[in-house]
Amino acid sequence: MNLGSPSLLDWVEYYRQHSTSSKNERVSDFYRHGVINPATSIGQAPMVAMDFETTGLSSADSEIVSIGLVPFDLKRIYCGESRHWIVKPEQDMTEDSIVIHGITHSNVDAAPPLANILDQVLDAIEGKLVVVHYRYIEREFFNKAVLGLLQEPLLFPLIDTMEIESDILKGRQGFFDKILRKPLKPIRLDYCRRRYNLPHYDAHNALTDAIATAELLQAQIAHHLNPDMPVKDLWA
């Protein structure tokens, strides 16, 4: 498995630098809060699963319309502390995206812009290890949104259940697939979940998907990984 490979980033160092270099008070505050100790075992780590619904697939021309968060650890997922926001994008939504996430114009018209709730989102993830399914979406959309609002980039370590799943599948890949370095396609959340006897969810919103992601990580670790493994071997 590829999970042991060192991260490209040294997150402790990254946080340390940005806690002083960031010009925005809220962003530097976020970094000062610090990153979880990389040696902490995943079984001990406080985590929060996060999911976005966006108006499109590319952060270049799409925006966040909703955010779901649910805190959890390897024992329990705490729905009682979950959060869900619908936010008003700056540009109008296309009909296509409405079909996907079911959030309509009237929903977002009544919703606050991201600027109004960004503080709450940062409060909710501070000090916790963020878990997502397919990290490029959440990382890029969030970074871009914060950059737009606070004129500072905002990056933090992420555990990506899709990457974990793909590593697990790679471990089972045939010899020729490995030789040919055949790239794995993105693996949909629902498809990953089925492999662990996790239920199918009808409701598609950011909160349901965040919970679904948390459940998936619990299942992946229970089946394939050691709860004692340090978080630095899992995050990126």
Partner: peptide, 14 residues
């Protein structure tokens, strides 16, 4: 009630 639920996953045999 649904808002307060906690969720836990158990592997077969545990």
């Amino acid at each position: 009630l649904a808002k307060q639920i906690e969720i836990a996953y158990y592997v077969a045999g545990s």
